Simulated assay, not measured.
Amino acid sequence: MNLTFNLQHKLILSFMVILMATSAHGIETPQYTVIYEDETVEYRQYEPYIVAETFVDKSVKYKKASNEGFMRLFRYITGNNNVQADIDMTAPVQLVAASEEIAMTAPVQRVETDDSWRISFMLPSKFSMETAPTPGDERISLRLVKGQLMAVVRYSGRWTERNYDKHKERLSESLNAAAVETIGTFESAAYDAPYVLPFLRRNEVMIEVKSAPATQLTAATGS
């Protein structure tokens, strides 16, 4: 029990060190263009990107599910993956299995499905589906997220279920009032490490939509 506790804390501390080290240079985030915004909602057209994702059973509570999913993904980006690389040598070319550390990106995303929580984060844009390291944990998979139009509400504070529900309701009410048709389910996104003061944190709740108010732009159907 103590060994598991200490290991988890070491991993969390390592994550914080990585974030602090990369924050000075900027952490890569999904690319998007804001096409419309009102007092509450921002409508963003996202470019395609790749995510690593894992599912945690819905019977697990919100906070614990987030922590469990995050730890799986954290191990993946810090070396629990297999990369096959062609290496030119004087002897025949060899395929070498190795571990690769993957740069941090933001945000970490959480989605509620019918029977589970889906926790994911974006892979750096230098990777394609063909070149991305294969997860060493079979519970993690890679997926290409197609370009999509998202309605987003941004908020500060802690990344809690209560805070998420509050702002999801704000987003839902705004979309209903504007008669905007949605696609899929709501998603929750967190951009900052736990050591960042709550009032400085960037959190978001979002959902894919078919079009933005007062525009004729139609979103690509998400996967």
Rank of each mutant, 00 (worst) to 15 (best):
Q31N: 12
E47H: 10
D192P: 10
D88M: 07
N2Y: 14
A179Q: 15
P135G: 05
E204W: 00
T221N: 06
T22K: 11
D114M: 03
A65Y: 05
F199I: 02
D192A: 07
D38C: 14
G136W: 05
M16T: 13
V180S: 06
D88I: 01
I35T: 12
F55I: 05
E39A: 14
D114N: 14
V152E: 05
S174K: 07
L123C: 03
P133D: 06
A21E: 07
E42K: 12
H167Y: 14
V209W: 12
S156G: 07
G136P: 05
H25V: 03
V51C: 01
K58F: 10
P198D: 03
F5P: 00
N81W: 02
A52Y: 11
I87C: 07
I77D: 02
K58D: 00
P107D: 01
S120V: 06
Y49L: 04
V196D: 08
N80Y: 08
N163P: 02
N82M: 03
N81S: 02
S223L: 11
Y164F: 09
P30Y: 00
T105R: 02
E181C: 03
S174G: 03
P133Q: 08
N176L: 12
T40R: 11
T160E: 14
F186C: 09
S120Q: 08
F127G: 06
N176F: 02
I50Q: 04
M129P: 04
K58A: 06
H25K: 10
S116E: 06
L123K: 03
T4Y: 11
N80E: 13
V56T: 06
T131K: 12
V51S: 02
K166W: 00
T218L: 11
S59E: 09
K61C: 04
F5C: 06
S128W: 11
S59I: 04
A177W: 08
Q8M: 13
M16L: 07
T40E: 11
Y32N: 12
N82A: 12
P30V: 11
T131W: 10
P92F: 00
F55H: 12
L73G: 01
I119F: 02
E47L: 06
K146F: 01
I35L: 07
T105H: 04
E161P: 04
N80S: 08
N67E: 09
Q109K: 14
L13P: 00
V205A: 00
R202H: 14
H9I: 07
S223A: 12
W117V: 09
F5K: 12
E138V: 11
R110P: 03
Y62M: 05
Q31T: 15
R118M: 13
E169T: 13
L175V: 05
I18C: 12
F74L: 09
D192N: 14
A21M: 08
N80V: 06
I35E: 02
N6A: 11
A98S: 12
R158K: 14
V108H: 10
I27T: 09
P92L: 03
L19N: 07
Q8F: 08
M20V: 09
A179W: 12
Q84A: 06
N82D: 11
Q84N: 10
I77A: 03
R139A: 15
M71N: 03
P213G: 01
E138D: 14
M104Q: 02
A212C: 03
L149N: 04
Q31G: 04
K126I: 13
N176G: 06
T4V: 13
N80G: 02
Q31R: 14
E37H: 14
